[in-house]
Design a protein around this nucleic acid. Structure first.
Length: 880
RNA sequence: GGGCGCUUAGCUCAGUUGGCUAGAGCAUCUCGUUUACACCGAGGAGGCCGAGGGUUCGAGUCCCCCAGCGCCCACCA
């Protein structure tokens, strides 16, 4: 097949992807029978909120692992899917509706809103599917999943029911993070802090001075709390009461002593508002104090606030301060106070803690059977990582995982949204408070109504590795094991979870909790955490900043393969990377290089009889005795590279693996071997080396390698070609011999350049000892010099074992001053090195403690360099 | 307050269990278009591996300490 000089990915990529899909190999059921051992990865589902960004392009790591496993003859399964992302999706659609129609969700009603969201989500899913295809991901589309599909819906609700039966899910009064804007609770880790400057007020409260940045919560305060050891307040005893003039007249307040108060902060005394502050809530729980609601769910003050009732807090605050000031209770104000405001990171409002009835997962209740012990969810989650059943790459995240898991509190899983998995709890219609639920998937009857809330989206995502493998049907709840012969049995636990480190807590930790409970298995053997993709200045990419790089735009401009390589090379797990266009362009050049290498090889093949072309899939013809040094060398190098790439792949060092294959292909195969092939052709070997290189590169750059594979006449896809295995035939001596030859060539070229000898001129080259005719030919052609054979000692020697001494007689061409300087500099450098080596070798501790081969190498090195110095010194002397 | 990471060539970054005279890409400079490729080839210059201590025959790599940058968690009445 004829290939163009420059590779035009646009002409190939879509067709190649279509051809892959046509083979059916993305589905492991269709793989040849030789593929036996299961290997599975579940794609972390992108949110169905629109389009994919560059972060999602990091899925390429998973494609590399899957393609690698598939070529290794495993039954490789990679399941795609999308997440309904309840709060993110609902608020996105709500804001669209508000913008376009000026309506709220309450105007539409629950059913209509969900219909609108479904339509939106369908559109997103189509876009996402196309984007994933465009990136060349070998996903099994026949097993595609969506977190709200009916089977998954049933799985989630069944899980809820099971957990409720085991007492792991309960309903309770808890202080929760309430978002008055989106009208929902927010998980702790869904909040972010915004630093704000706000006045900090000090008020007289009975005999105490108290400080607050939130005076509007103080209406119901009737406790003052201080540290038990605070010497300033020893005269006040725990439980003692006192009278105080406050907002609406005299009140009776109680002294509480609690260690959670920091005596250094403010006056060391504070009043508490248990209903609207997490810490205050805990103090109130400890001492059994009354709790009173001050602010409603809309963020407005309740009747307890008297004349301020009904006001939003921002409005009430200054007015209340004014009133207290008039009463003479305001003692001072700190205008420069900086504090953090909690904000819903999903684009919601300022969080107002509230006490509400919510559903929780109990993480400390010991009801799980694990390794013959009763353990809690938390204990199991800690155990599986501590015991090494789950490995986190890079391992420094173990520490982060442990500290997070150890501090985990019961997890609030109910959300006041309309979109998502509705909680399968049912109340009698007269049970308005919702205190006696029946928990089951289906409605117990007409006299019941269902809980209004939906589940936190991490509850369903936490089940992702097994819910996507048809857990609801294929898990035998009687035996606690997957049914034999099912996907669930074959592919679970999955091999790897590959995701960004930013959701280690959000997601990875919850998957471990949910899976050890639901499957009695770990969800995955290895967690590979990649870094975040940033712009060239290290800033996070975001739409609002406009510094984002659209992966698809880059794919069109430089080809998908180039984008994929740029995301892999030069990166390491857990560390952020900076990506910019020039980097992608650099890899585009490499893709073009591969294409041209193949073109050269094919042109060469066309010029030789078919019998010399080698046959498809044959092992390298390394055994042949007729090979020239270059042939031996490239073969040996290839084996070395294969071995090292394999090690890198095994150790999850994808950057190193890709870089090595890249280096070999370009700077060894193309720059040296192919150059030599121009006058010493070996098309069969060229082809074999090319094919093995294509295999090594395929997981990284699947499109170009597949295209060339087909061009080389292969029927079946490169996807299922046999991955190159480690070979015994590498030969270090050969590699060294060739390195010497390279060195000679470099020297000669250098001299030729130095004395301005043009290609047309000839200059004679004498070697001081025998050199094989093959090598002489290589030198002659690579350097464009004439090799005078008459000066050799007659016969060619065995190329493999010959040693060279090399000397160039340049006669009149030499510019003595320059040459003297050059030689002297070189001698000085070498002398320095030799002195260092001698000192090293003179040290007995070194010679006896260092590995023998290292010492040996140093000794050999020393002799060589000493010889070089002598030679150089001779040359210098000759110049006078 | 607790924890983690980064600091290596002008820029972006690799560097595995300590062991060849510390690497790559881009940028730069010199030379070169002989039909695989100018999205190219040959070569050069450019580094007290953040500072300071320590362990070791030997440290970019391990330990301690410091500095700058970044991130996570907790707290902020």
């Amino acid at each position: 097949m004829e290939l163009p000089k420059a590779y035009n990915w646009k002409d190939y990529e879509d067709d190649i992807y279509q051809a892959w899909e046509d083979t059916g190999y993305f589905n492991p059921d269709n793989l040849p029978e030789t593929h036996v051992e299961p290997y599975s990865i579940i794609l972390p589902p992108p949110n169905a909120t629109g389009t994919l960004h560059l972060g999602h392009a990091m899925y390429v790591i998973q494609d590399i692992m899957i393609r690698h496993a598939r070529m290794q003859g495993k039954k490789a399964l990679w399941i795609p899917g999308t997440d309904h992302a309840a709060i993110a999706t609902q608020s996105k659609v709500e804001s669209i509706i508000m913008k376009e129609e000026g309506k709220t969700r309450h105007d539409l009603g629950r059913e209509e809103l969900n219909n609108r969201i479904d339509t939106f989500v369908e559109g997103s899913k189509t876009t996402i599917r196309n984007q994933l295809r465009k990136m060349g991901f070998s996903l099994d589309w026949s097993r595609e999943q969506f977190t709200l599909d009916s089977k998954l819906m049933e799985s989630v609700q069944t899980m809820f029911q099971k957990m409720a039966e085991d007492g792991l899910v309960y309903k309770g009064d808890r202080i929760v993070n309430w978002d008055p804007k989106l009208q929902t609770t927010v998980a702790n880790d869904e909040m972010e802090y915004e630093e704000k400057k706000a006045p900090f007020y000090y008020f007289q409260y009975g005999p105490f001075e108290i400080g607050t940045s939130r005076p509007e919560t103080k209406f119901g305060d009737k406790y003052v709390v201080m540290h038990p050891d605070d010497k300033r307040y020893t005269e006040y005893k725990h439980g003692q009461t006192f009278e105080a003039e406050w907002i609406s007249g005299k009140i009776t307040a109680t002294v509480i002593k609690d260690k959670s108060v920091d005596p250094e902060f403010g006056s060391g005394v504070m009043t508490i508002t248990p209903w609207h502050d997490v810490l205050d809530f805990e103090i109130a729980e400890r001492h059994n104090l009354d709790k009173e609601q001050i602010i409603d769910l809309e963020g407005k003050l309740l009747p307890i606030a008297g004349e301020f009732a009904g006001m939003p807090i921002e409005e009430a605050r200054p007015k209340l301060v004014e009133k207290l000031k008039e009463k003479g209770l305001l003692t001072r104000v700190d205008e420069e106070y900086e504090h953090n405001v909690n904000v819903n990171y999903r684009g919601g409002g300022v969080i107002e803690p509230q006490i509400m009835k919510q559903w929780f997962v109990a993480v400390d209740k010991q009801v799980m059977d694990w390794n013959g012990k009763k353990m809690s969810l938390k204990e199991v989650a800690l155990d599986v990582v501590k015991s090494g059943d789950i490995t986190i790459v890079p391992d420094r995240f173990n520490k982060t995982y442990f500290s997070w898991m150890e501090n985990l509190h019961d997890w609030c899983i109910s959300r006041q949204l309309w979109y998502g998995h509705r909680i399968p709890a049912w109340y009698k219609k007269d049970d308005i408070e919702g205190v006696n639920p029946v928990v089951q998937v289906d409605s117990p009857g007409d006299e019941y109504y269902q809980d209004e809330d939906v589940l936190d989206t991490w509850f369903s995502s936490g089940m992702w590795t097994f819910s996507t493998l048809n857990w609801i049907e294929d898990f035998d709840f009687e035996t606690g094991k997957p049914k034999p012969g099912t996907d669930l049995e074959k592919y679970h636990p999955t091999q790897v979870l590959e995701t960004g480190y930013d959701i280690l807590f959000f997601w990875v930790a919850r998957m471990i909790l949910m899976t050890t409970y639901g499957m009695k298995q770990i969800p995955f053997e290895t967690v590979y955490l990649h870094g975040l993709v940033r712009d060239r200045d290290g800033a996070k990419m975001s739409k609002s900043k406009g510094n984002g790089i659209d992966p698809l735009e880059m794919s069109v401009k430089y080809g998908t393969d180039a984008v994929r390589l740029s995301l892999v090379i030069g990166t390491s797990p857990g560390n952020d990377q900076r990506l910019f266009e020039e980097k992608i362009a650099g890899y585009r050049n490499f893709i073009n290089k591969i294409c041209n290498i193949a073109r050269f090889v094919m042109m060469q093949l066309d010029e030789v009889p078919d019998t010399m072309k080698g046959t498809n899939g044959n092992p390298l013809p390394i055994e042949s005795k007729d090979l020239a040094l270059a042939d031996h060398w490239i073969t040996s190098r290839l084996h070395t590279v294969v071995e090292e790439v394999n090690t890198h792949m095994q150790e999850y060092r994808f950057s190193a693996a890709a870089e090595l294959a890249y280096e070999f292909m370009w700077h060894e195969f193309a720059d040296w071997y192919i150059e030599i092939n121009k006058f010493q052709p070996n098309p069969a070997l060229s082809k074999a080396v090319l094919e093995t290189s294509l295999k090594l590169l395929h997981p990284f750059v699947p499109f170009i390698t597949e295209q060339l594979w087909k061009s080389l006449g292969h029927e079946d896809s490169l996807m299922v070609a046999k991955w190159p295995e480690i070979s015994e035939t590498r030969n270090d001596q050969l590699e060294k011999d060739f390195a010497e030859l390279q060195d000679i060539i470099t020297q000669v070229r250098d001299l030729r350049g130095q004395y301005k000898i043009s290609y047309q001129q000839e200059f004679n080259l004498y070697t001081s000892s025998a050199i094989s005719t093959d090598d002489a030919k290589v030198i002659k052609n690579m350097c464009k010099v004439k090799v005078v054979e008459g000066e050799m000692d007659g016969n060619t020697t065995d190329v493999v074992n010959s040693r060279y001494k090399f000397q160039v007689h340049l006669g009149d061409l030499i510019n003595t001053d320059e040459e003297k300087q050059r030689l002297q500099k070189e001698i000085d450098q070498l002398q320095k090195y030799v002195t260092g080596l001698e000192k090293k070798l003179g040290n007995e501790q070194y010679t006896s403690n260092a590995p023998a081969e290292v010492v040996e190498r140093d000794k050999k090195n020393l002799i060589e360099k000493q010889e070089s110095i002598v030679t150089l010194q001779e040359s210098l002397n000759k110049l006078g």
